[in-house]
Structure formats: C-alpha cells, structure tokens
Design a protein around this nucleic acid. Structure first.
Lengths: 335, 335
DNA sequence: TCCAGGAGCTGAAGCGGTTACGCTTCCATG
DNA sequence: CATGGAAGCGTAACCGCTTCAGCTCCTGGA
C-alpha cells in the first residue's frame, strides 16, 4: 500500500550524478557545485524525499529522539496539569530542533530503569528527561552508569554528572509564608505530596526555614481523595488552622470541596492556597489563591539544558525561580 | 562517555561463530543448534546486548514506533483527563508489544499533516493515531494518501480505508436524556465542545434523536472560562433550564463554580451533568453526576486496532459503547 | 609553459544488522 | 552400501546512507 519511498539513489539517477553527490548536496557540505546542488534539491523536493532516519543513525547520527518516562501511579493523576504543560514546553524546544519525543508510562522505578537501559541499548534515544525525583532516586546512578545525557526536572540541587533544572522552593515558600504572615496567619497546615518525593522534602525544609509560620505538614499523595480525607481531619480538630496550603491544584480543589461539604467558610473561616495553578483554580468559587509558575517555560528550559549537553557542553545545574503569588478570593486575614 | 555498545559481531567473536548465527539465534529462527543458541543467548545477556534498532529498520523491520499528534490549543486543556488516560491506555498496549510512542504537540491541522508526512518519509513511525476528529478533517485524506496505517479515535462512523474506534454517542445520549426525562426534566441546555469537532456534532444529533428533551445547545470550547461565561448567560435568562449538560468535566466544574457564585442551588435550582468523568468530579461539592467511560480501555482498544492492521488484517471500524451513568449529588427532580 | 592545488565528482568501504544460498555433516532409508 | 535430505553453519550480498580516498579537470602563479 505505502508506495516505495524515494532514496538517494533515485535522486542520483534522475539528476545523473552519484549517490554521494546527493548526500553531500542535501547535507550542505562542500564537494558539489551550486548548480548541481540546486538541481538535486529540486528533485528531492519534487520526490518528497526525506533521508531514512535509520540509515543515518547507522553512522552514529543519533536518533534525534529524547526519552521521557512518566509514572502511571494514581498519585500522578494530581500532576496532570503540570505534566501536560511541561511536556508541551519540552515539545516546543524539541520540535524546533527536529527532535522527537518518546513517551512511556511506567509502573515503578525498576521498570523505568529497565526502559532507559533498553532505549539506550537499542539506540532509540539520544537523551533522557527525568521527572518526579525521589529522595535517593535509583534512576540517577542508573543513568550515570549508562552514560546517557539526562536532565533531571525538579529536585533540590546540583546533581554531579547530570544536568538539572531545580525549582527554587525557597523563593516560593518565602512568598507563600510571607503573604500569610502579613495577613496575620500563624497556625497553618500544609497538605503535601508524597514524603519521598524530593521536592516535597525541599518545600518542607524551605517553609520551616522562613520561620514565619507555625506549620504542620500532613503528607498526602497528590490525589483529591487523600486531600479530602486529610482536610476533613484538619477541619475537625479543636485548634484548627486558619489557613491550609496544598501542594498542588487538585488537592486544593478537593479541599475546597470539603469546606463546602462541612459548611466551613472560605476565606472567612479558613484560607486556602494552592502551590501550583491550573485553569480550574480560577473558575471554582471562591477562586483559589495560588503560587503560579510558567510550567511550559520550565519544560523549554529543561529541553535546552539537554541540547546544550548534546552539543558538547558540560551538563549544568540551574535553578528556576519564577514563581509568582496570584491572590484570588480564597485567602483573607484570619478572624 | 557512553561505552561502545556491543554488536552482533562482538558476540560472534566471543562465541566463535559467525554474525549470522547470532542473528538467527537471537531471533529464534532455525539454523542454529540449541546449545550454540543457548551459548549465544548467554553471551548476549552478559554483554547487555540489544539489537540496534536502526540497523533492523534498514531491512523493512519497521521502527516499532507509533505516532501521536495532539493539538496544543487552549481548548485542548479541557480534555487533559481524557488525554492522559487515553495515552496511558495506548501505552499499555504499545509497550506490551515493545512499541514506542512518538508524541508531538501541534498548532493546527496543517502542521499535523506535515509532521505525519515527515514521520512517514523518515520511516520514524509504523502507524498513527488520529485524535480530535473534525468534520471534514483534512488529515483523513492526507493519511490515506500516505498509505500509513492509522486509526482514528473518535468520530461518528466507519471511515473507508482507515481503522476507527468511534464512540457510541447514541447510547450515551440515551442514558443521559433518559435519566433526566425520568426525573421530570424537560428544558435542558447543553454546553458543548467546539461545533466543528466530529463528536460534538454526533452528540448533538444523538441527543435530538432521543426526542425526550427540549434541548438547546450552546457551543463552548472545552475551557472553563468559556463554560463559565455560557453558564452565567444561561442562568440569567428568564425561562432558565432545569438542567445543564456539559460536554466535559472541566466545563461542568466551571459551571458549578458559577452556580456557587450566583447562589443558584445545585441540584435544587438546577441539575448539572458532565459528559465525561474525572477524579475532580467526585471531590467537589456537590459531587457531579457524570457519564463515565473507561478511557484507558478506549486507548487500549485503539492500539489493538492498529496492531491488527499492522499484522496484516484489514482495517476495521468499531464502536465503543461502554459508557455508564454515575449518579452523584448534582442531579435531582426539578422543582 | 609547467605544475601545484583546489573544485567537483566518483568508487569503494563500512555502519549493524538481515536474507538467500551454498557447503558440510550426519542420519535414516532403500 | 549408496543416497537423499535435513540440520547446522558460513559466505556474500544487500538495506540507505556516510565517509574516505582517489581521480579528473580547470585555474593561476612562477
């Protein structure tokens, strides 16, 4: 069915030169006169020619693909908005360079490492993006061992031998805590993501470091369900907090649902904040005060870090700190 | 940095046979004795060998990759939950067969077609998944012309020359309309997705065909913002409806936000339904009545249709109709 | 006028696999 | 005991492209 696709030989025959001339011409290398080059380009265009990726790859050309593995866990449902925008940002950079993205969902870290290994062995990818860093993540050593360029999106600090785009959680925590403290809040509970995620730990530490609030952290798992349960408990305690910070938008929205269910006024009885924005945070009632960052930009910067490395530079560790506090209707001074 | 990866020649040398024997052994073909085969397997394992994809692809082996292009449009934000689960389902089937997924975000249909063309020319993919079908979608003819196996996820009916997994919108519309009619509703407004999407049109027709309700359709674009505006208008009219159906979860949630903002009781003053479920629909207050379907399964079936085709069978058109009405707290008889 | 040198091109080799085919062995069969 | 055929292996060719080492002109400086 699929008509045979043209090869360089076809072009060579049509133009009346050797395959080599075609190769040189199409790759913009010297060794062909301008007129022949032009002629070859025309014919290539006319035939809809595109070089067979595999044949190029045989000469160490690289697959022009970068790999991304994402966990399928239910908890990951909570970071959909982040993921989508992150991947979209990645994509923009990748496609600008003609790179493809190989995406695979995995169950756990072992499977993830196995996939990386296979991708590498089969030369399917030129580099990797690592997301959702855990504390003591086994993937780091595995990927170092493979020697495959990889950039870690997230995490707390420089990672030797890898590129890294970490988030400036101190800055974010400062804005959040500063704002709440200025409003007069003191007793605050934070419903966090899984405790074993690197940036959960980083946020906890960053919040404590501000010293502005009396913060208790309750670990959830990014799902609405867990956040709802946690919120019910929090709102039922005697000395309940005057504000709750949720580590992502989904949990904050679930928490807001619980306040409605329990007839707790927002922001009159309790203030609610989300440590990540999403379109939904604006359309619920009351609209949520959030710490917003440019996620697509985050993805783009991640891709650029990888390209730098592929282009021969040393892997770098960079900090992204563009989060901004967007005050909406879910926060107010405590009673 | 990346240590040279072993080739078949390396194995052959170690074992003391020819490269061909290695090829036969590793591919499970006859022509090698069991002991030699075993020995080769051992060495391959020991060396961490995996055949170079590109080299195989040179022999028409196929890239073992299928391509998926998704629109980046803001409206698409509304189908995140669907997309994620769909892609996850796809993935499960793909990885079970050792296939990779090439994902690319695009701006519009032209870019999409261009990417398909390039992927095909470079032999990067063995097949395509087409999502978000429009009425008179230009991608259909383009992909037919390429002769690249493609399955369309969504759409209204059989598409000659392509595989297709369509949704049984009649069944869904029947359940939705039947339930509302049974409750005693008559005047209903539906806030739909973009009018030029094939399944929006299919739903509109399906709802009308039931003849059970007096339905008005207001086209939005899947975003919360548009849905909120539409809802404000709907709730402000004199003879306002007793129920509103939203074409996806995000719009329904936005609509719910507006009812809170306008102090319209749900479900006392108006019933709200979402034509797609998501975790959030359960955690908001009141929890939303939805038409739920197994999206991951939908993705899996899509992949299977493609594999059937790749395996030499004729492309098929199948209808998926497993939607189930989940009644929660946002619906009640009209006053 | 001669020859060095570069521009413009080609042939051959090779990337890492696969496939077609041909050559030994060895065993069962008549 | 001759013979046919399958099992088991190797050789050669090839997939589509790149790269290297020539080869042939043509130009221009001494």
């Amino acid at each position: 069915m699929a008509g045979r696709r043209p090869t360089m030989s076809d072009i060579a025959r049509r133009v009346g030169v050797s395959r080599v001339a075609v190769s040189y011409a199409l790759n913009g290398r010297p060794g062909v006169s301008d007129e022949v080059r032009e002629r070859i380009r025309e014919v290539a265009e006319e035939l809809g020619f595109a070089a067979h990726k595999a044949a190029k790859a045989l000469h160490g050309a690289g697959a022009d693909v970068i790999g991304l593995t994402l966990r399928r866990t239910s908890a990951a449902l909570g970071s959909e908005v982040f993921r989508r925008q992150f991947v979209a940002g990645l994509q923009m950079e990748l496609s600008a360079r003609g790179f493809g993205l190989a995406l695979q969902f995995v169950e756990g870290p072992d499977e993830e490492v196995a996939i990386h290994r296979r991708w590498h062995a089969e030369r399917r990818v030129d580099g990797l993006i690592l997301c959702d860093l855990r504390v003591d993540d086994p993937r780091l050593d595995a990927v170092r061992e493979l020697g495959l360029p990889a950039v870690v999106a997230g995490g707390a600090g420089p990672l030797p031998g890898l590129a890294n785009l970490s988030t400036d959680e101190q800055a974010g925590a400062g804005k959040l805590a500063g704002y709440l403290a200025a409003l007069g809040h003191r007793r605050v509970v934070r419903v966090s993501g899984p405790a074993d995620m690197a940036h959960t730990a980083a946020r906890t530490a960053a919040l404590e470091d501000t010293g502005l609030l009396d913060i208790t952290t309750v670990a959830a798992d990014y799902t609405g369900e867990a956040a709802a349960q946690a919120t019910r408990r929090i709102l039922s305690t005697k000395g309940r907090p005057t504000a709750i910070i949720y580590d992502n938008d989904l949990m904050a929205l679930a928490g807001l649902g619980v306040t409605a269910e329990m007839h707790v006024g927002v922001p009159t009885d309790v203030s609610i904040l989300a440590w990540e924005d999403s379109p939904l945070c604006q359309v619920v009632h009351p609209a949520l005060t959030v710490l917003q960052r440019n996620i697509a930009d985050y993805g783009m910067r991640t891709a650029r870090l990888l390209f730098e490395w592929l282009d021969g530079e040393q892997p770098r560790s960079v900090k992204a700190g563009n989060a901004v506090l967007v005050v909406r209707d879910s926060t107010a001074p405590p009673r």
